[in-house]
Amino acid sequence: MSLPPADLLRNLALAQALLVVPALGDSYAGKSAGTVAAILLLAASDVVHYAERRSGFRQRLEDLLAAAAPDDVTLRLDLRTLLDQIGTVPLDERLDHLMGGLEALHAWADANDPELARRCLDFLVDFATAERLDPPGLPG
């Protein structure tokens, strides 16, 4: 039976925390092993919803960019091109691809369109809130 990635990462974290860290003690290697355990625990929680969460935000961002009609010809064209290219961008890079458009749109909106700026910021707040990680803790 293959382990789901989250279980795999959690078990590796446990092995680091319970076997490697105590053996290495207060050394640089020991501290590093502790940090690796923390990263693995964070990733174990993160990986469960990562793809689904990012896919949802990618769709929402695509909608936001498609609906925006900035009063700037160059920016409008850039956004159109960006959206047209999305199918050619590797799956795991699509959100970043669109974030580039959001960066430009938000900068324009901050200076020219408060309502659009609010929508951009709403998206960013929701995205960053969903991305925030809980402090790692070993299972009791």
Partner: peptide, 16 residues
Amino acid sequence: YYPYRFHNHQLAALLR
């Protein structure tokens, strides 16, 4: 990883 996402969230909230 952790601090980056922490501050990304914090900054977005402060901007709002």
